[in-house]
Simulated scan of single mutants.
Amino acid sequence: MQSLFSPFPPMNILPFGGEAILYENLFSNEESDTIYEHLVTTIRWKQEPIKMFGKMVMQPRLTACYGERSVAYSGITMEVQHWTEELLAIKGRVEEKAKMLFNSVLLNYYRDGNDSMGWHRDNERELGAQPVIASVSFGATRKFQLRTYKDKSDLVSVGLTPGSLLLMQGESQQVWEHSLPKTKHAGGRVNLTFRSIV
């Protein structure tokens, strides 16, 4: 994959409390379409159970974990798979922008608008005090929301388009929580969150 010049300058979408820098068109539309189809058909997707409000339910999305270290969240430790050639190529493009190396990626496949992600923070101990989370999207554009964790008083919404990168860093995981709400008439979307797990 060759580097692609984006006509849209990166912007921090957070007004305070860390950074969430949006890079639009990190991958071209043609690249994004090809990558999306490849990931949907080749990744070893699973639907994992998760504890919500005291009972176990199936997560409203499919997930997978690839890399050198397994990803753990909400009491789940995911089975880690070896890097694929495609994932390594995506990782290289992301690392070039982030200016750091990642050793794991969590993939989420939102099959349609009924699939979602609830409010949470990526603040697990193994990610460090101020983790860098690099979130890449392919497929349908979906609304991504962030709100202040303690008082819920500030809300930021952005449409994450195919081929975009959202780089969350600094105090973002302490001050803000984020979600991907349900929506009507949405196509499939694959999201990759690259992490450095210690």
Rank of each mutant, 00 (worst) to 15 (best):
residue 140 A to S: 14
residue 189 R to E: 03
residue 162 P to F: 08
residue 186 A to F: 03
residue 163 G to P: 03
residue 135 S to M: 02
residue 172 S to Q: 10
residue 184 K to N: 13
residue 132 V to R: 01
residue 145 Q to F: 06
residue 149 Y to R: 15
residue 157 S to I: 13
residue 156 V to I: 07
residue 185 H to Y: 06
residue 137 S to L: 11
residue 186 A to N: 12
residue 180 L to K: 05
residue 192 L to R: 08
residue 193 T to F: 01
residue 189 R to W: 00
residue 158 V to H: 08
residue 135 S to W: 06
residue 161 T to I: 08
residue 162 P to R: 10
residue 139 G to H: 07
residue 153 S to T: 15
residue 173 Q to I: 07
residue 160 L to G: 08
residue 184 K to Y: 13
residue 186 A to K: 07
residue 136 V to H: 14
residue 182 K to S: 02
residue 176 W to N: 04
residue 153 S to E: 14
residue 139 G to E: 12
residue 166 L to I: 04
residue 186 A to I: 00
residue 173 Q to R: 05
residue 177 E to D: 03
residue 175 V to Q: 13
residue 143 K to W: 10
residue 139 G to S: 13
residue 176 W to C: 00
residue 145 Q to K: 11
residue 169 Q to R: 15
residue 188 G to M: 03
residue 176 W to P: 00
residue 179 S to I: 05
residue 155 L to C: 12
residue 154 D to N: 15
residue 183 T to S: 15
residue 192 L to Q: 05
residue 182 K to A: 02
residue 189 R to Q: 01
residue 157 S to G: 11
residue 147 R to F: 12
residue 166 L to D: 07
residue 177 E to A: 04
residue 184 K to T: 12
residue 176 W to D: 04
residue 191 N to A: 06
residue 140 A to P: 10
residue 149 Y to D: 13
residue 139 G to V: 10
residue 169 Q to F: 04
residue 182 K to M: 01
residue 168 M to N: 06
residue 165 L to E: 00
residue 136 V to I: 14
residue 143 K to L: 15
residue 161 T to K: 11
residue 158 V to N: 03
residue 192 L to I: 06
residue 152 K to Y: 02
residue 173 Q to T: 09
residue 136 V to P: 13
residue 153 S to Y: 02
residue 193 T to L: 04
residue 167 L to T: 00
residue 168 M to G: 09
residue 170 G to L: 09
